[in-house]
């Protein structure tokens, strides 16, 4: 009887032990598999089975970041590509970062390969980045809000740190495209100069340099830098038709800045015409124009200056509340 009980207990213990081992092995195996997969691609592509095995089924001690996206060109998801690029940066940074461990994995589900996963999670939009914590179910905060945080790798990393306490330093592969483009330009320029080494007169062409400088001024003064940094819409569509001029003085549309650049340019052209008509600066050859033509040119210049400057003033007046002055036009 005693032996029987002992045996029984032994059997039970053994069984339990085996069971425990199995389960533990299951986790280890999974982590091992995932580590292997991560070694190949920093982002693990997931289909339904893999998703269930690695992400959904319980024995887990690791967090899983999954991006749901639709990369196929037929889906026409332009933002997906941008998010994907940033996501790759994040996953690669994690792989080389000192905090690299098997507690965090990156996965990706493409809609065309795992539409059932989308259905399972009731996702209607792409791209979505979700965090599946080691314990418990994802909370609303476990899906990243691109609208608020943006899609930059820095934002994603901040969000990951927020959710998992794993700190990653962004390691962007140095962006060679800029450097390459610059080098290409430089080589082209140098080659061009070399080819024309016997005829470098054009470099002394002041007109060309002056045009470049003046155009640069137009671009800056019309707020192209603001456009570059803030990325405003080209123009605004409303029910009453398109609006080209932003109503507030703190904003502008891309088209608006072009209009302003053209207005500025017209004033400058007008003034130069007038000066040339009146004889130009000392040192430059006075064009032997006849009086009629000069008068005509001068009047054209004057009209350009006045009309376009007043247009500029009216546009400005429309944007600035309570601005009292105008010229020619309301």
């Amino acid at each position: 009887m005693k032996y029987k009980t002992l045996l029984c207990i032994t059997v039970i213990l053994t069984y339990y032990n085996i069971d425990a081992q199995n389960r533990a092995k299951g986790l280890d195996e999974k982590v091992q598999q995932l580590t292997d997969m991560t070694a190949k691609h920093s982002i693990i592509p997931l289909n339904l089975n893999k998703f269930k095995d690695f992400v959904k089924s319980p024995p887990r001690d690791y967090s899983f970041i999954v991006m749901f996206t639709a990369m196929a060109p037929s889906r026409r998801c332009t933002i997906c590509q941008h998010v994907y690029d940033e996501y790759v940066v994040v996953a690669n940074s994690f792989r080389v970062s000192p905090s690299y461990s098997d507690k965090l994995f990156f996965g990706m589900v493409d809609f065309d390969e795992g539409s059932d996963i989308f259905q399972m999670l009731r996702l209607n939009t792409a791209p979505v980045i979700m965090h599946f914590p080691a314990k418990g179910k994802p909370k609303p905060a476990d899906s990243m809000d691109f609208e608020r945080a943006g899609i930059h790798a820095e934002a994603i990393i901040k969000w990951i740190q927020d959710r998992t306490d794993i700190q990653i330093r962004v390691f962007r592969p140095p962006n060679y495209s800029g450097a390459v483009a610059f080098a290409m330009l430089f080589i082209l320029l140098a080659g061009f100069l070399y080819l024309r080494r016997n005829n470098l007169e054009f470099l002394y062409n002041k007109q060309m340099w002056a045009i470049i400088a003046v155009f640069f001024c137009f671009a800056m003064v019309s707020g192209q830098m603001w456009n570059q940094i803030r990325g405003p819409p080209f123009f605004h569509r409303t029910k009453n038709g398109p609006v080209y001029i932003n109503g507030g003085s703190h904003g502008q549309f891309v088209l608006e800045s072009y209009i302003v650049a053209i207005l500025n340019g017209a004033v400058v052209v007008g003034m130069i015409l007038m000066i040339e008509a009146a004889g130009g600066v000392k040192g430059t050859v006075v064009a032997a124009l006849e009086g009629k033509r000069r008068r005509f040119q001068s009047v054209v210049g004057l009209v350009l200056v006045c009309v376009f400057f007043s247009l500029l003033l009216s546009v400005f007046r429309a944007k600035t509340q309570g601005y009292p002055y105008s010229f020619l036009f309301k």
Binding site: A210, V214, V221
Partner: peptide, 16 residues
């Protein structure tokens, strides 16, 4: 008005 006239000055400075 200076904002739309200063390129003229720049123009003549570079030309001369």
């Amino acid at each position: 008005v200076l904002v739309c006239t200063f390129p003229v000055g720049l123009w003549y400075c570079i030309k001369n």
